[in-house]
Nucleic acid binder design. Structure first.
Lengths: 187, 187
DNA sequence: CGCCGAGTTGAACTGAATCAAGAAACGTGG
DNA sequence: CCACGTTTCTTGATTCAGTTCAACTCGGCG
């Protein structure tokens, strides 16, 4: 089972804890377009995406829809700051494809954190992995041209480059839809 | 003592553990210009800066010196991915001021992680705080004009805006030194 | 005093944004 | 299965924020 494998790949934990942890996750199939989280709500659940695609986004001062992050197969989906600090989220989240997910509530995860050192470690490792990805993206965005940024995406997240709509990819890369379209046509 | 206070502010832990943890930190005064970490080295130590200023940076493909992050008073200084994953760092780190720091080795911190659940939690919380800061910066960089980015810095990290050299601030914000100079003169 | 790094100022250039209009693709209901 | 409206993507012309390159100023220090 994918979720088990994912957890094991992050931290080695006793079978009993792994089983208990997985037991707290509930399988949910969600259709494309589902709003997982609205702006201003506190994120109460963390999801593991077995198969599917989602994004977090917000509307900036000019009312433009800006994609912040994509979530796809075999990864966790969560509004990090909102979930872990249990405060209102700056971002919304929605599904871009029909998805198979496993959800766990904040309270249950917190219980696991409290009870098991190894789950706490799981949390730490996952955070650091995210941090690493984020630093990569920041560097790409900060000092690369539009073309280089797209190359970065293709290289690092090829599935997203192919599965997500152009407009979402463009705002994720910090460029306009028109520019991205031109870049694609050049290749 | 600042270090103790910092730890306590992140996670509440028993006095005994707190004392033991602090015991592993060694006070070091380091002069301005000290290279904490070279590119390609693995980051072996994590520092708490009681008073001082440092930055992490790298030379990009065009040979330009790019500041990635600043570290100042009452914060941790570390090359996150390198330290926590014990792999070669993409970045260098250097001190920009004479600084009072407390250092702990990877091995000792790892020991504490293994031994105390609450220290592990400390690690998780610190990572998530960093993550939050990073997301903020990413958003600032990605969708704001040069002027707005500088305003962001002033607002969020005023001490850095005043203490760090202009060139370093400029590359941190993803703009050129000339542009930043013009922005400053306009105000 | 003269050098050196850090910051400033000016002028020309450019990558990407913006504005605008159309073409394709998509899905929903008759 | 087609027709229609809606959303997504493409293409073109124009504009502009910020870069680049180059020269100059200023303050500190041996």
């Amino acid at each position: 089972m994918k979720l088990e494998k994912f957890i094991q790949s992050v931290v080695d934990m006793p079978q009993s804890v792994l089983q208990e942890m997985c037991g707290y996750f509930k399988k949910v199939n969600l259709p494309k377009g589902t709003q997982i989280l609205e702006q201003g709500q506190t994120c109460k659940k963390l999801y593991f995406i077995e198969k599917g695609l989602a994004r977090s986004y917000y509307y900036n001062e000019k009312g433009k829809d800006v994609t912040v992050w994509f979530f796809s197969d075999n990864n966790l989906m969560v509004s990090v700051e909102s979930f872990f600090q249990q405060k209102p989220s700056l971002y919304q989240m929605e599904l871009l494809e029909n998805s198979i997910t496993y959800e766990i509530s904040y309270d249950n995860l917190q219980k696991l954190f409290d009870r098991y050192h190894c789950v706490e470690r799981f949390g730490r490792r996952v955070s650091i992995d995210l941090l690493t990805d984020l630093v990569d993206k920041l560097n790409a965005i900060q000092f690369q041209t539009a073309k280089e940024r797209y190359a970065f995406l293709i290289d690092k997240y090829p599935d997203i480059a192919y599965r997500a709509p152009l407009g979402h990819i463009a705002s994720y890369l910090g460029i306009t839809q028109e520019t991205l379209s031109r870049i694609r046509s050049e290749i």
